[in-house]
Nucleic acid binder design. Structure first.
Length: 442
RNA sequence: GCGACCGUAGCUCAGCUGGUCAGAGCACCUGGUUGUGGUCCAGGAUGUCGCGGGUUCGAAUCCCGUCGGUCGCCCCA
């Protein structure tokens, strides 16, 4: 026997048994297809970076949320990547002036964070990152939103399952300023707006007042932070509804046109409550949530024109987003979009059953080999039984499309091909099996 | 870093005012059916009741600790 030790998987990590792995492949295929169809190219970087790469932007406070380490005997600090954006910025900066315009890249990295796991947030997860460098206008923003929506649609979600909630840092600042928020309190105001949904009104009012707003302005801020307009309506309405200057909404009006041309407005809402972390966003900010807002954000993105220069590269306009596999998986599960056709993985084209006669046994493996060489997914039992009923049961259990029975007919060069979905079967010459299976879409 | 709840068969769970308390369903295996599946019938195997300690004549049950899980808070890239 083995040792008496048992091993547990580290906290916040996952094992991917075949069902879970099939779901992961399903999601990643949708991601990759959507990005490639929009002209993005796949990249990746190292799984760990110098710790500095993360602290330079976010400060030392982030260190406690990172998995960091040193090489045994070394003195250089490393960290498992908690996000992909710094790696991307580093890679782009290293290209310097030879960076193509635009540069459209995507990646599907494994990311790590040292926090305690909770619903939708694990210590290790995969996140789809899509970035568009070099396009300053609304078309860049609209295009990356289009990529995200394309993937979600391919996974079976609709515009009544998920919403793209869009805001703009500039217009948000203008609206807050018009309400009387002083420039010095702008960051605090963003944070407050971001937290509005999770706060009781009194607490919100109290904090808003501490930003220097009078009672009337607090009420208008509350109204603004919690109002949301369907994408088909003009975002300018956000200003007129709140008694604020229309010019403040120019940026969103432009984005609205770019989204309209792509047929995306029905997926979107204008939402002044979307702020995102204060990190590096400079313009458009958006998140994708389930309609009820019951789960965490499925995706988050926006424009960050200073990013590449922050990491020592040229000043280049940039926008993009990240979408994690954990919340997305929960959402697909919630919506019943992960049935057996997904979790079961690829269906076998044919299951070969042998009656156990010497001739059938001699034919079995060479036939399986030949069919596999021709590109088919072929299975047969590994059990000792040659009971046809048991083999059919196993074939059905693994969702095979056809069963090929090697039996007494073999002496006349014939085999039986049974369609498991339809229940019909036919006898045909062994030599024709390849042709028939390929014709039926195997 | 803080808080709440939970750990019994492969899975979902019942049992929990301490005393037939080692249980059910599903899944699995065997047979009914030596060449026709997803149904049905009959039978079968399965556990350190998370781990360690304490209280007790006696602990799955009560207490403490610990590990793990879930969900919040903080944070959110």
């Amino acid at each position: 026997m083995g040792t008496d030790r048992s091993f547990q998987r580290p906290k916040g990590t996952r094992d991917f048994l075949p069902d879970a792995m099939a779901v992961r492949r399903h999601i990643e295929c949708a991601w990759r297809d959507a990005a490639i169809r929009h002209g993005f190219e796949e990249i990746d970087g190292p799984t760990f970076e110098h710790l500095d790469l993360y602290t330079v932007k976010s400060g030392d406070g982030i260190v406690s949320e990172l998995f960091s380490f040193q090489r045994s005997g070394g003195d250089v600090d490393y960290a498992l990547r908690p996000e992909f954006t710094p790696t991307l910025a580093r890679m782009a900066a290293a290209q310097g002036r030879s960076l193509a315009t635009p540069t459209k890249w995507f990646a599907i990295p494994d990311l790590f964070r040292a926090e305690r796991p909770q619903r939708g947030r694990l210590r290790e997860h995969r996140q789809w990152n899509v970035d568009c460098l070099g396009l300053p206008g609304h078309d860049g923003d609209a295009e990356v939103i289009a990529v995200a929506v394309t993937a979600l649609r391919q996974l079976g979600l609709t515009s009544s399952d998920v919403r793209v909630r869009i805001n703009h840092r500039g217009t948000a600042a203008a609206l807050l300023s018009a309400l009387g928020v002083p420039a010095t309190a702008m960051d605090a105001a963003f944070t407050l707006v971001d937290k509005r949904a999770k706060m009781p009104s009194e607490a919100f009012a109290k904090e808003a007042a501490s930003l220097g707003l009078d009672a009337a302005a607090v009420e208008r801020l509350d109204a603004m932070a919690s109002c949301r307009l369907p994408g088909e309506q003009s975002p300018v309405k956000l200003a007129t509804d709140n008694g604020l200057p229309e010019e403040a909404l120019e940026a969103l009006a432009g984005l609205s046109e770019a989204l309209e041309r792509r047929g995306l407005l029905s997926w979107c809402d204008w939402d002044p409550g979307i702020v995102r972390g204060l990190a590096y966003y400079t313009g458009t900010v958006w998140e994708i949530h389930d309609l009820a807002g019951a789960e965490r954000a499925v995706a988050g993105g926006g424009r960050y024109d200073k990013l590449v220069s922050l990491f020592g590269g040229p000043e280049v306009p940039a926008c993009g987003f990240g979408m994690g596999d954990v919340v997305l998986g929960l959402l697909l599960e919630d919506k019943g979009l992960l049935d057996e056709s997904v979790t079961g993985g690829p269906r076998p084209d044919v299951f070969i059953a042998s009656s156990g006669s010497d001739e059938a046994e001699d034919r079995l493996i060479p036939l399986a080999t030949a069919l596999r060489d021709s590109g088919l997914h072929v299975r047969h039992t590994h059990k000792a039984t040659r009971n046809i009923g048991k083999q059919l049961r196993e074939a059905s259990g693994c969702r095979a499309r056809f069963v090929l029975i090697l039996g007494d007919e073999l002496s006349q060069g014939q085999v039986v091909l049974k369609d498991l979905d339809g229940g019909t079967q036919q006898e045909l010459p062994l030599a024709d099996v390849h042709i028939v299976l390929r014709r039926t879409g195997g």
